[in-house]
Each structure stands twice: as structure tokens, then as C-alpha cells.
């Protein structure tokens, strides 16, 4: 070995880790070329008015005019946005809780489990845009026995109209919503099967009922999956071809009055809003602490309080002792003076 060329510990590993870049190289190129660069470009488009000419695109810088046009003069986007927001906020909890229930039902020891699973995973295969469109056209996407108009009337009496309308749309598209929950059921089921059964046994020995087991074992364990499913559902609902806003963007892109620039502005706004919804749900779920965390926090706080009290008492005791000692000293002094 040559002098002065000492290999530092960890160097070798570091160099090996450089190989990692080689492995992810295709993806790195892809994300720069097909995600980041188009994003920047589309932002640039959104600040321009673009005309497609035979010799290429003609761009005319207009600043934020596209955005102000969306908010001030174009009614379609804002209206579509309103219904999209309401529907997403209502449909996501419905889908996620429904898929959790189905997954729990399927996780039990029942016969014909395979057949039931097959039925519930079927939508993953066939729930694509055009198929759903065809079914919705035939009105096969709503439950036949359900009287939607009655529900609508009932809701209209008690709730503001906008809310009632969106809840009704959830009911009338029930099958569509159920069909969108295939992947979610799959994820929940996989998570439920990973829960250690000894946990339930221990709870049973301690006298926990099924209800308590659900709230204190099942739910905290699948909590990360709930977040995953919520994010997946939001993305799926938003990037779906049935979504009216997506259709609007697509139409605008091809229309004579809109063009690429205007559509880019819409797409940008849309992605910002979608990310905001994802973040909203993430905060809502991860911000909520479960029973144990709360209890542990409370316990810690009480412990601290007790300690403080203890300290206080000790200090007071010390002070009192000192006082007492002083007092005694004085008394002794006085006595000695008296005796003297």
C-alpha cells in the first residue's frame, strides 16, 4: 500500500453508494425530462396566449391574464371546481370507510371467502372511464331499489341546497363510488392480515369486547393505511376521466377560444388545489392522535406535575426546617440569656 493513500473508513461504502445513481438513472432522466421540465414549461405556457400556426406555436406574453380570466370572466371552471371540491370532500370519507368495512368483513373466517374476494376486487379490472361512461348512460350505476328523489327531498328540507345536492349525487352514483374502492379494499385487507392475532387474544383475555378491539387495536394499526388510501382516493378521483374538470381542461386545450395557454393555467390551478386537498386530509388524519398517545401524554403531564409538587413540598420542608432551626437557635439563645 502506498503511503498517504489511506482509505478512510466508510469511503468504500460511499463509493459503492454512487452505483445507486446508476440504478436510478433512467428514472432521474425521466423525472427531469418528463415531469419537471414540462411543469416549468406549462407554467410558462400559462403566462402566454398561444396560437397554433402551421409553422409552430406563436406565443404572446400576457402575464397573469389567463388566471384572472379564470376567476373573473369564465364561469365554467369555478363552478366545476365547486362541485369537484364538495364531491371529493364527501366521497373520499365514504369510499375509505366503506372499503375498511368491506375489508374487515372479508378478513373474517367465513366460507366462500375466495368468491367474495373475487367479486369485490372485480372493479379493479373493469372500472375504466369509457366502461363507466357506458354504464352511467344506461343508468346502471345507481342502486335500483334506492329511491333517490325521496332522499333528495328529505335532505333539501334540512340542509342548504348545495350540500344536499352533492350528498344526493353521492347516493345516486353509489355504485360508481363503490366500484372505485377496489384497490383500497385490497390495501386494507393486506394491512388487516398483518395484524398480530396475539394482540386480539390478549385483549380478549383482558375482557375487551369486539367493539373495543376495533377502536384500540385495528384502527391504530391500519392508520397509516388510511392515510395511504385517502391520498390514493383523492388522486384517483381527481385524475379520473369522469371528472368534469379534467374534461373541461381537455376541451379547452383543443378549443379555438381557449388554447394551450389558457388550459395550462387551468391545469396549474387544478394541481395546486388537488395538492391542497391531499395535504388537508393528511393533516386531518396524522394530526389526530389516538387514545394511547393522548393517554401517554396525559400521564407524562401528570408525572411532571407530581414531580413539581414533590419538589415544592421538599423545598417547603427544607425552608421550614431552616426556619425551625433558626427559631430553635433563637430560643436557645434566649434561654441562655435568661439563664445568664
Amino acid at each position: 500500500m502506498k503511503k498517504g493513500r489511506k482509505i478512510k473508513p466508510g469511503r468504500l461504502e460511499q463509493r459503492e453508494n454512487m452505483i445507486g445513481y446508476l440504478f436510478i438513472l433512467p428514472w432521474l432522466i425521466g423525472i427531469v425530462l418528463l415531469v419537471l421540465w414540462p411543469m416549468i414549461q406549462s407554467f410558462q405556457y400559462s403566462l402566454n396566449r398561444i396560437k397554433l400556426l402551421p409553422q409552430g406555436m406563436a406565443m404572446l406574453y400576457v402575464g397573469t391574464e389567463n388566471y384572472s380570466q379564470i376567476f373573473l370572466t369564465d364561469p365554467d371552471f369555478i363552478m366545476g371546481l365547486e362541485t369537484y371540491l364538495l364531491e371529493t370532500l364527501i366521497a373520499v370519507p365514504v369510499i375509505v370507510s366503506f372499503s375498511l368495512i368491506i375489508a374487515m368483513l372479508l378478513n373474517q373466517k367465513i366460507s366462500c371467502r375466495g368468491i367474495f374476494r373475487m367479486i369485490f376486487f372485480l372493479p379493479i379490472i373493469i372500472a375504466s372511464g369509457p366502461v363507466m361512461q357506458q354504464l352511467a348512460d344506461q343508468e346502471a350505476a345507481s342502486i335500483p331499489m334506492m329511491n333517490v328523489t325521496m332522499i333528495e327531498q328529505l335532505l333539501d328540507e334540512y340542509l342548504p341546497h348545495v350540500l344536499a345536492a352533492s350528498i344526493t349525487s353521492v347516493f345516486s352514483n353509489m355504485i360508481t363510488l363503490l366500484w372505485y374502492s377496489g384497490v383500497q379494499i385490497l390495501i386494507f385487507l393486506a394491512a388487516l392480515q398483518k395484524i398480530d392475532t396475539s394482540l386480539y387474544e390478549a385483549a380478549k383475555i383482558d375482557g375487551g369486547s369486539k367493539w373495543e378491539c376495533f377502536w384500540k387495536i385495528t384502527l391504530p394499526t391500519v392508520k397509516p393505511m388510511i392515510l395511504l388510501n385517502v391520498v390514493y382516493t383523492v388522486i384517483f378521483m381527481s385524475n379520473n376521466e369522469q371528472n368534469s374538470l379534467i374534461v373541461l381542461i381537455y376541451d379547452t386545450m383543443l378549443s379555438a377560444t381557449g388554447g394551450y395557454g389558457y388550459a395550462s393555467a387551468m391545469a396549474w390551478l387544478y394541481s395546486v388545489i388537488e395538492s391542497a386537498i391531499v395535504i388537508f386530509f393528511a393533516v386531518l388524519i396524522m394530526g389526530r392522535k389516538d387514545v394511547y398517545e393522548r393517554r401517554a401524554k396525559k400521564y407524562r403531564r401528570e408525572l411532571k406535575k407530581e414531580k413539581r409538587l414533590e419538589k415544592k413540598i421538599r423545598k417547603r420542608g427544607e425552608r421550614n426546617e431552616r426556619k425551625y432551626a433558626k427559631h430553635k437557635q433563637k430560643q436557645e439563645q434566649r434561654q441562655s440569656e435568661k439563664s445568664a
Binding site: 406549462s42 387544478y270 394541481s271
Partner: peptide
């Protein structure tokens, strides 16, 4: 990677198409 999953394809569709 996660960000590119959340991003709707419409945001990058037009430049990609071009």
C-alpha cells in the same frame, strides 16, 4: 417521486404532447 405521483397528468400534458 411521491410528488410526481400526486401531480395530475394534465399539468404536464400539453408540453409533453408538444
Amino acid at each position: 417521486l411521491l410528488f410526481s405521483f400526486i401531480l395530475p397528468p394534465q399539468a404536464t400534458m400539453m408540453p409533453t404532447y408538444v
